[in-house]
Design a protein around this nucleic acid. Structure first.
Length: 1189
RNA sequence: GGGCGAGUGGCGGAAUUGGCAUACGCGUACGCUUCAGGAGCGUAUGGAGAAAUCCUUGAGGGUUCAAAUCCCUCCUCGCCCACCA
């Protein structure tokens, strides 16, 4: 009978679906005879409930031209695992859905000119049909699509929950902008590409859009962010406990990028010293609030401070107070005038009257209108509330407006109004006490005396900080503008850096550029030295504080920059290698590297392996000698060369080693010296007995290969390769810290300069906003009226409200022209009926947020929804609590390696958040994760642009789903990926044809004469296949099945029906249709009810589930018998001196003596070993024997 | 530049607590069968050699009775990250 795969496959796909073979018991209320909670067969299964197993594969983007063989590869691989678990007594849930919201799908819709909403329906149908044809055990009842309003209602709801907990916020920031997609991209979605150049070493890179490969530019926009950084520590810590591939774990750790270091403030010094006038506010005095503290701090720094006691502070008249201030305080061009609250108004009025500008003005919680949040404080007599803005602007100097985001007195719009009137910069932050009334307000001090805060992982190198660098976007630069002497040049650099086009960046490459801020200096807090301040774009704005202390002696980037701009380099760490000998004194010594300039080779002494290998010339320094003299003497004594010229030397190194030639341990302080050989003249050497070495001249490469001594190689790297030392060691040039171990010194120095230990993460907050159409609208509303009065759902974000749950989803309206506009706004911003709405609080006119959320948000929680999609409560809750408790976390998650950072990280973040707000009871969403490999086509990545995308339909049509499935899995290990070539698929087809032939034509023996060999092969195969599937090594599992079939065919009379049935079960996860058909046939033949075939098809139509036949996919997985799996004999390999000479069949379990006897009996061995005995015998039980003669 | 991983027949790959290198499959050659289909079956198939035998896991070196596997140096390729202080 012919193997008609088409008929078989479509038949069983229908049966499975109608019988609900792959529908798990999501709740305890479903029933079917075909369910995995099985009644009969298999003693183990009896009476025992199958435990839930959530087997998940990442859902696909249905944006492409249909399913791709790469999708098929991934889904089949996941399905095999699921089927394996199902046969191992698990109730397996294997859902499927589509991630069809987002830029991928929208771009595809744009390309083919169909509206994405329409295209989604077309793609959906097509994808599901194609997925079904693979024969996977999907739970088709629980599909979901991310663009379904029933789904994105909850995506939006999650957004509102994050907002309520302060984890969703808005921020203006230069963001990555893709000019082609016309939307912002998260940092993660920008791929760094290397420009092709002749010189490969020059690392010229530029960012391109993940989706369309367009070069990304920077744009400043206000955006929504999720505060994923709040979970950085937990995201990192939990990684250790996950059963994920190590590679993915490493990638996640790197992405989080934790580093331990310190934050240190460097004070800024300008040419002339400022003096301070501090004005208190309403009902205050020089002793009130924070001013005594501020005065003390300023005086400690050596500044003059005056704090006038303003008259009638309880019943103030501003004119009177201004008079008083002008009389009691002195103002000049170096004055810093600070006013708190009403004092800020006094300050402004004072400025109006001054003849000349002050250096700086600081308005702390100031205001311009007689409007307050608590009540109206001041009557009309206080003053006229009119300002001469022109005069104030002229005198105000560098203006700082400080606003407390938790202020309970001053309305939040006042700071903005002050800025509009008088210019300056607004700094917003949460004060220690509302209205900045704390006993200490460090931010206030920071705005009075400028300092640069840096983050460093190497506070131990602080004494070596010889300059500082600010990133071009650092806001401090603006504050200091008035003191920068070369402002024009600086501004030019900033402008260039900010708007740096990709072309320019490419032209510049990694060459560092920068410009010094002239007229200002920073003070190194360790030694009080003045150091220059630079701005350079090698310092990033988004990391740490956007400023660094540069230690060119111990940091490669700083070193490169310092070399280019001739900045001083001070060494503060001396290398230390080996383990120190406690009771040994330190000897001063040298390492001399002699270079022959003509040949470019270096003089080395080869002492032989036992005597320390290859070394440069070394030796001690004798009394009265300096390092150079000692080195010259040693060169002469050991090699005879006398014409050497000193070139350079290293700093001191601490070294602990064992001196082989003298047979003693030593502590030494060594200095490496570089000499040029200037002549070949040699004198006789006076070598001692023990000084046995060969002189060798070696090239650079050879030295790196042969010289192992750390001390010597360090000298070579420093002197010849010009590398700097970035490791740890002993402190030097660091005052009282000299000699200390640098690891200890890190925290001692931090303490010494008043710095703070700080943990810094590389991870940034998650940028959510997308200026596109095809996505879930961000469910937020902005009310201008509420904003003006400081009202809002969250204090720190006046005017913003989340859409209440009963108003969700915010449906995406149908917009005919959905193309991105490139204005920085979503197409939704053109739809009045969409954005016009009412304020949920005051009912007034309000505006909806028109951006949509990042696609990654859609996919960051879908696994939680799957089991609950068809639950009765699915409209009221995002997920059913009971079901979730039963089915989550996901037991096995398989997906592409390209998602090993972002998608998994975002999912983990949300899962942790859900647990924190008590929606779930687990921290981690995916217990086990494995990344499948990439399927390539004839050596190249499959891509639409290359036109080499393989559509699986053709293969299913020509060969059948079973053949395609097995072929894909046979290519290579599943986690490695494979190369899809047409050649080779015939091998699998032949295999299945042979299986078919055996299943339909063979007559199985009932009592075979010799079944032992077959049983042994079968049980060995069960073992192998079971282990391999567990490790996703499907290729070797299939190979084992082929070997077993070969064995069956070679012994036709000895195979029982039971043997063959076990074989079918092992094959079932790989080829579900053919095995089901053959299984069905064996079952029928067994009890002679030939009409059962009809019975099941009738059943299909009547939908009665009374079938006596049970699917092979619900059968119990075979178990192997350890004893049967073992062979009775084995091939004893006989080696002589490690070479294979013969092999004999020997009974399993023989001992060494018997094996030796067998070996020595071999004719071939006798020919080689004439003596007939072996000096030594190594016997590896069950494998080989090696005779050494 | 950093991190991770990989280099084995003509090809995909197997063998990793060190123990017969090249399983399984493709391809190829020859033969059989078949009115012929790109089918089926059988045999052979790492290289050199008439043979004994020798050589062979990217290159070189080391450890070991024994190395694809462990160690060192280098080369090549792939993936990820990339001025993260």
């Amino acid at each position: 009978m012919k193997y008609d795969f088409k008929k078989i496959e479509s038949k069983w796909q229908k049966v499975w679906q109608n019988e609900g073979v792959y529908e798990p018991n999501l709740k305890e209320d479903k029933n079917s005879t075909l369910r995995p909670v099985r009644p009969a067969q298999g003693k183990r299964a009896q009476g025992k409930k199958a435990s839930p197993f959530y087997n998940l594969m990442m859902f696909p983007y249905p944006s492409a031209e249909g399913l791709h063989v790469g999708n098929a590869y991934a889904f089949v691989g996941s399905d095999i695992y699921g089927r394996f678990r199902r046969m191992n007594c698990n109730d397996v849930f294997e859902p499927i859905g589509l991630d069809g919201f987002g830029i991928h799908s929208e771009n595809y819709a744009l390309k083919i000119g169909v509206h994405p909403a329409k295209q989604a329906k077309i793609s959906e149908k097509r994808f599901y049909k194609q997925l079904a044809s693979l024969g996977n055990g999907f739970s088709w009842d629980e599909k979901l699509e991310t663009y379904d309003p029933a789904y994105y209602k909850w995506t939006q709801w999650i957004f509102t929950q994050l907002f309520k907990k302060g984890l969703a916020y808005r921020k203006k920031q230069p963001v990555n902008w893709c000019p082609s997609c016309k939307t912002v991209l998260a940092d993660e979605q920008v791929i760094q590409k290397r420009q092709e150049t002749r010189d490969k070493r020059q690392g010229i890179t530029f960012g391109v859009c993940e989706r369309c490969d367009t070069k990304v530019i920077k744009k400043e926009l206000e955006q929504w962010f999720f505060k994923i950084t709040d979970y950085a520590e937990k995201l990192l810590k939990n990684i250790d406990g996950l059963d994920w591939s190590e590679k993915v774990k490493v990638a996640q750790r790197n992405w989080l990028g934790k580093s331990e270091g310190a934050e240190i403030d460097f004070e800024i010094k300008t040419k002339e010293k400022p003096n301070f006038v501090l004005l208190h506010g309403y009902n205050g005095s020089p002793k009130g609030n924070f001013r005594p503290w501020l005065k003390k701090e300023l005086e400690k720094k050596g500044y003059k401070v005056s704090v006038p006691a303003l008259p009638n502070s309880k019943n103030p008249k501003v004119a009177e107070q201004v008079e008083y201030v002008l009389k009691h305080a002195k103002f000049d061009k170096n004055t810093v005038l600070l006013g708190h609250s009403l004092g800020a108004i006094v300050a402004l009025k004072v400025l109006e009257k001054l003849k000349q500008p002050v250096w700086r003005s600081v308005l702390v919680a100031g205001f311009v209108e007689n409007k307050f949040l608590d009540h109206d404080r001041f009557d009309e007599n206080t003053f006229d509330w009119k300002f001469n803005a022109k005069r104030i602007r002229a005198n105000v100097g560098d203006l700082h407006i400080l606003r407390d985001t938790t202020d309970e007195v001053v309305p939040p719009d006042q700071a903005k109004k002050l800025q509009n009137l008088f210019g300056g910069a607004v700094a917003e932050f949460a004060a220690q006490e509302p209205h900045m009334c704390g006993k200490q307000e460090p931010e206030v001090l920071r705005s009075c005396v400028d300092s640069i805060r840096v983050f460093t992982t190497r506070p131990d190198t602080l004494f070596g900080a010889t300059y500082m660098v600010l990133s071009p976007e650092n806001p401090l630069i603006q504050n200091l503008e008035s003191r920068i002497q070369n402002l024009v040049e600086v501004k030019k650099y900033i402008k260039k850096a900010k708007a740096k086009s990709e072309e320019e960046k490419i032209a510049e490459g990694q060459v560092k550029t920068g410009v010094e801020l002239k007229g200002i200096k920073a003070i190194n807090p360790a030694n009080g030295k003045e150091i220059p301040i630079w701005i350079a774009d090698y310092v990033l704005t988004g990391y740490g504080t956007g400023a660094i202390m540069a230690v060119p002696a111990h940091d490669e980037r700083d070193f490169e920059f310092a070399k280019k701009y001739r900045l001083p380099i001070i060494n503060v760490i001396e290398p230390e290698t080996g383990k120190s000998l406690p009771n040994e004194e330190y000897r001063r010594s040298i390492v001399a590297i002699v270079e022959d300039v003509k040949t470019g080779k270096f003089l080395t002494l080869n002492w032989g392996q036992k005597l320390g290998g290859t070394l440069f010339i070394g030796g001690g320094i004798e009394n009265g000698e300096d390092e150079i003299k000692a080195a010259i003497r040693e060169i002469k004594e050991e090699t005879g060369y006398i014409d050497v010229k000193f070139v350079a030397k290293t700093e001191r190194m601490h070294h602990h080693y064992f001196a082989f030639s003298k047979n003693v341990g030593r502590n030494i302080n060594a200095v490496g010296l570089h000499f040029h050989l200037s002549g070949d003249k040699k004198e006789d050497t006076k070598l001692q007995e023990y000084e046995k070495f060969e002189i060798e001249w070696l090239t650079k490469e050879e030295i790196l290969q042969k010289v192992e001594d750390e001390n010597h190689i360090l000298s070579f790297r420093r002197l010849i390769l010009g590398e700097i030392y970035i490791g740890s060691g002993k402190m030097a040039n660091s005052g009282k810290f000299n000699g200390l171990d640098s690891e200890t010194a890190k925290w001692e120095i931090t303490k010494f300069v008043g710095g703070k230990r700080k943990t810094q993460f590389r991870l940034r907050d998650w940028l959510i906003s997308r200026q596109r159409y095809w996505g879930a609208p961000i469910p937020m509303v902005y009310c201008e009226k509420c904003a003006a009065s400081g009202k809002g759902e969250r204090k720190e974000m006046p005017g913003w409200y989340s859409v209440p749950e009963n108003k969700l989803p915010v449906k995406l309206p149908f917009v005919k022209d959905f193309r991105p506009k490139g204005t920085g706004k979503s197409p939704l911003a053109t739809v009045k009926s969409f954005y016009e709405t009412k304020c949920p609080k005051c009912g007034g006119k309000a505006r909806r947020e028109t951006d949509v959320s990042d696609t990654f948000l859609d996919s960051a929680w879908y696994f939680l929804r799957y089991p609950s999609t068809r639950s009765a409560r699915s409209g009221q809750v995002p997920w059913d609590k009971e079901i979730t408790k039963k089915w989550l976390p996901v037991n096995m998650y398989i997906g592409g390696a390209e998602h090993s950072v972002l998608h998994l990280l975002y999912s983990r973040f949300l899962t942790m958040f859900f647990k924190d707000i008590k929606l779930t009871n687990f921290d981690e969403p995916f217990t086990k994760f494995r990344a499948h490999g990439l399927l390539i086509k004839e050596g190249a990545k499959m891509s639409k642009s290359k036109g080499n995308v393989v559509n699986p339909d053709k293969y299913i049509k020509n060969f059948g789903a079973d053949t395609l499935r097995m072929y894909l899995m046979f290519l290579a290990p599943f986690e490695q990926g494979g190369d899809f070539r047409d050649a080779g698929i015939l091998g699998i087809k032949r295999f299945l044809e042979r299986v078919w032939k055996m299943g339909t034509q063979a007559t199985f023996a009932e009592h075979p004469a010799n079944n032992r060999k077959i049983k042994q092969a079968l049980h060995a195969t069960i073992k192998k296949v079971t282990e391999d599937i567990g490790e996703l090594r499907y290729n070797t599992a299939i190979s084992a099945l082929m070997i077993l079939l070969n064995e069956f065919e070679a012994n036709p009379g000895n195979v029982t029906k039971d043997d063959f049935e076990n074989f079918l079960k092992l094959l079932a996860p790989f080829a579900p249709h053919i095995t089901e058909e053959l299984w069905y046939r064996t079952q029928i033949n067994a009890d002679g009810h030939a009409d059962k075939r009809r019975y099941i098809s009738e059943n299909l139509r009547s939908n009665q589930r009374k079938s006596a036949f049970r699917s092979i996919h619900l059968e119990k997985w075979p178990e192997y018998d350890k004893n049967l799996a073992k062979s009775e004999t084995f091939t004893l390999v006989i080696q002589v001196n490690g070479k294979v000479r013969d092999s004999v069949e020997a009974p399993s379990g023989i001992g060494k003596e018997e094996a030796e006897k067998l070996a020595l009996n071999s004719e071939k061995v006798k020919n080689i070993i004439k003596s007939g005995t072996a000096k030594k015998t190594i016997y590896v039980p069950g494998r080989l024997i090696n005779l050494v003669v």
